[in-house]
Design a protein around this nucleic acid. Structure first.
Length: 584
RNA sequence: UGGGAUGUAGCCAAGUGGUAAGGCAACGGGUUUUGGCUCCGUCAUUCGAAGGUUCGAACCCUUCCAUCCCAGCCA
């Protein structure tokens, strides 16, 4: 980008030779130490296990939108693959037709790509393997390692035993191979209704690990699958499908979250019993974040019950929500890198995410001026009808961002919070008799505040110092405050959406008996206001990110129209004055 | 009360027998035409607890405590 004056607001994407979508999910700015998974991969490479190959996969079920928790997994799986010159597949774990939809697979593809995951041509579906999986199931039956059970779901539960007592064997457990085969084939042929029979692995009803007490591996579901339509009426369960999908794809390291530790024994049993290629499952702690919920069930509820305006509501921790909010994918990758990877349950503070967002945007967002809570200022000694233009840089630390012209006139608007009739100690902004700098424009001194009958300030009368043009001190005198402004005659009205945490407590998941996380929804999570923007902002593209000086980072929303732009507040700037004032 | 997993600062997290990295947050200060950024400084005599082994223990042993996961024909 040429360092010249221009009118179009530069965007980080346009100013970078590396569009985010093509950089791998693997290049955070900070270099973390080696975590236990990478350590293990290095060890496997050293010992020649898997022939030095690294092949991972990101395996979402298309039953909802991806969120921050998935971001951790995406960065891990695609990151590890990239770091070790390996591959990472995108695999849809679509074995439950009643919960899955095409809309979700579309959003997942978009979100993974946006975050930087590149699966090239390796987009797979567990449903692609249905025939092969069926063959494996028959093989298990022939080995005497699986049987068709006529027990109802409830009866199976009763037979399973409890945490402390062993289970009991089903009366159908010892059917002949021939009978099992016949029954299983008839299950496939659609001769039975949903729930009438299941196929179970024959393992050990007394195992202390409940997962091993003859787990169901196929159930009957007369339902239309979003990919296979009505060709199947029996569907394999997760525990049977996942390990075999990993095996079929030649996965080396099957990374998943801690709640699957118990399932690993079954993962290994299936592959060992069938005698097929055996990847290793490694578990890590899932992500928890303060002030938010990251469970699919809860996110679905927020959407379906209308507590938010959709999966991409900017308050949602979904990737589409964060994207719309203005969070750059680079910030998310940096976040995932900074939170580390371990096996201890943990809850990361939201401030960690905010830091990553600000860190990236500070370096990559153009600075512009907007007044969100305007109060009119008349500059009494400025000639009526006169308009000047000030050249203002788009970025204080990066000349390549160029600059734009900003009009100035007799009537301007400043932030209501930048004036006090009776300023507290250490208040550096405007007050009666006090001089401040209008950023890149002039020094002004407040002469008088005009109040209405209720005592509300309606306008400020000020005078300016013509010698201070550009905001330079004419005689070396200092002003303590510099405030932003917008010319009244040139201001561009806009809808601005100010977001706060969706929940007002650190852990909305910890609702006591009889209450729910919904009771903690922050009623002020969204405030819509009318703001005034400097005219250069008329040309922003949807999705473009800027800093409104002294206020925060904002992103132009897709709801914008030609007449009326809409902005989402991505994050505020750090505000040490607010902190100071609060302390008194 | 069965099995599994995990406990290092307010929050993440290194550390794997030689005397507690780093980051976030917080706090103090310098700088500043964003009360932003940035820079400098402070922040664990102690690693869930108690015993033991050792010249030496967050790391090894024993016991105890706490938290999380598992009784779907969900993933």
């Amino acid at each position: 980008m040429a360092p010249e004056t221009k009118s179009a607001v530069p965007s980080p994407a346009a100013g970078s030779s590396n569009p985010s979508s093509t950089t791998a999910a693997a290049e955070p700015a900070s270099k973390p130490g080696v975590d236990f998974i990478r350590a293990r991969i290095m060890e496997d490479n050293a010992t020649g296990r898997y022939d030095g190959k690294v092949h991972t996969r990101f395996p979402p079920e298309p039953n909802g939108y991806l969120h921050l928790g998935h971001a951790k997994s995406i960065c891990l799986n695609f990151g590890v693959a990239k770091e070790f010159s390996g591959l990472c597949n995108l695999r849809f774990d679509d074995t439950n037709p009643t919960k899955e939809e095409q809309e979700y697979v579309d959003s997942i593809r978009e979100d993974v790509h946006w975050l930087g995951g590149d699966w090239q041509d390796r987009e797979f579906y567990a449903s692609n393997y249905f025939e092969q999986l069926y063959e494996y199931a028959e093989q298990l039956i022939k080995m005497g390692k699986a049987y068709v059970d006529d027990l109802s779901a409830e009866e199976i539960r009763e037979h399973r035993g409890t945490l402390t007592e062993p289970g009991r064997e089903s009366p159908w457990r010892n059917r002949s191979v021939e009978e099992n085969l016949d029954l299983f084939r008839r299950m496939r042929a659609g001769e039975f209704a949903d729930g009438e029979r299941v196929l179970r692995a024959k393992i050990n009803m007394a195992s202390p690990n409940l997962v091993m007490r003859d787990p169901t591996i196929y159930r009957i579901r007369h339902a239309e699958h979003h990919r296979t339509g009505n060709t199947w009426c029996i569907y394999p369960m997760y525990d049977f499908t996942h390990c075999l999908s990993d095996s079929i794809e030649g996965i080396t390291h099957s990374l998943c979250t801690l709640e699957f530790v118990n399932n690993r024994e079954l993962y290994d049993w299936v592959l060992e019993t069938l005698g097929v290629y055996h990847p290793q499952q490694i578990e890590f702690a899932r992500l928890n974040l303060t002030y938010t919920v990251l469970s699919k069930r809860k996110l679905i509820q927020l959407v379906k019950e209308g507590h938010v305006q959709g999966w991409d509501d900017p308050r949602m921790p979904t990737l589409s929500g964060l994207r719309r909010r203005g969070v750059p994918p680079e910030a998310l990758r940096e976040f995932c890198s900074r939170i580390g990877l371990a096996r201890a349950d943990s809850t990361v503070e939201y401030s960690m995410l905010e830091f990553c967002v600000r860190e990236h945007l500070n370096a990559h967002a153009a600075r512009v001026m907007a007044v969100l809570d305007p109060i009119k200022v008349i500059i009494e000694n400025y000639p009526e009808g006169q308009v000047e233009e000030f050249d203002m840089p788009y970025h204080p630390e990066d000349e390549s961002y160029g600059s734009r012209k900003v009009p100035f006139s007799r009537e301007i608007y400043i932030e209501r919070d930048d004036f006090r009739l009776d300023p507290p100690k250490k208040y550096h902004r405007l007050a009666p008799g006090v001089e401040v700098r209008l950023r890149y424009a002039y020094f002004i001194t407040c002469r008088e505040a005009v109040l209405d009958e209720n005592g509300n300030i309606t306008e400020l009368r000020c005078v300016y110092d013509p010698e201070s043009r550009g905001g330079q001190s004419p005689d070396g005198r200092k002003v303590k405050g510099t405030i932003h402004w917008v010319s009244g005659a040139h201001a561009l009205p806009a809808e601005v959406r100010l977001y706060e945490q969706l929940f007002s407590v650190e852990n909305p998941n910890a609702a006591p008996e009889g209450q729910s996380f919904l009771d903690y929804i922050n009623p002020q999570s969204l405030t819509v206001i009318e703001g005034l923007l400097e005219p250069a902002l008329a040309e922003l593209a949807v999705g473009q990110k800027v800093q409104f000086e002294r206020l925060g980072y904002f992103c132009k929303d897709k709801d914008s129209t030609a007449e009326r732009p809409v902005f989402n507040r991505t994050a505020t700037l750090r505000d040490t004055w607010a902190k100071l004032e609060k302390k008194g």
